[in-house]
């Protein structure tokens, strides 16, 4: 067990953990940040998506020992960026969230896109979200919501 310092959602934190502990468990169990979900524990579903130093990762695959000195941003914090807040609103308005279990990961993954590619096409959005599985929506409204937040405002179809 070691002490690890990291900055989570803008706040410095020190956690005491085994270096191989999953960042996911440290966030959920030590820091009480349960917005980051576990859907598979093997990097497939993206429900555990977080940003480490602005880079999208699966928190279920990151050993916390590798986060020393890093910035970690989770669903609880990323809404502070107005572009991400707009993305969150678009998800509600367009119907991008149903059961909601994939939604935090989806929004974290989309935020990485919204910040770097303001005018992403639907095809780019689909590729950027390919690591985030959703079983409820068929992705139609998720893609629409991200497109809207990207300022494209165009939809691929749907009602």
């Amino acid at each position: 067990m070691i002490d690890i310092e990291l900055v989570v959602n803008g706040r410095s934190q020190r956690v005491h953990a085994h270096p191989l502990a999953r960042l996911l468990d440290v966030l959920r169990e030590q820091l009480g940040l349960c917005g980051t979900k576990e859907g598979c524990g093997e990097g497939e579903c993206g429900a555990c998506s977080v940003l480490i130093d602005d880079v999208l990762v699966n928190a279920c695959l990151v050993p916390v020992g590798q986060c020393e000195g890093s910035r970690v941003d989770t669903i609880e914090g990323i809404g502070a960026d107005p572009r991400v807040a707009a993305l969150q609103r678009a998800f509600v308005d367009v119907g991008g969230a149903q059961c909601g279990i994939c939604t935090p990961g989806m929004i974290v993954a989309a935020s990485a896109l919204v910040r770097t590619r303001p005018r992403a096409t639907p095809a780019e959005i689909r590729t950027a979200l390919a690591g985030n599985l959703c079983r409820c929506t068929g992705y139609v409204r998720i893609v629409d919501a991200v497109a809207q937040a990207c300022g494209a405002g165009e939809s691929e179809g749907g009602a």
């Binding site: 990097g43 998506s49 999208l56 699966n58 993954a109």
Partner: peptide, 9 residues
Amino acid sequence: SGAAAIQNR
């Protein structure tokens, strides 16, 4: 390979 998050790591 994988998707974005895997490609980053």
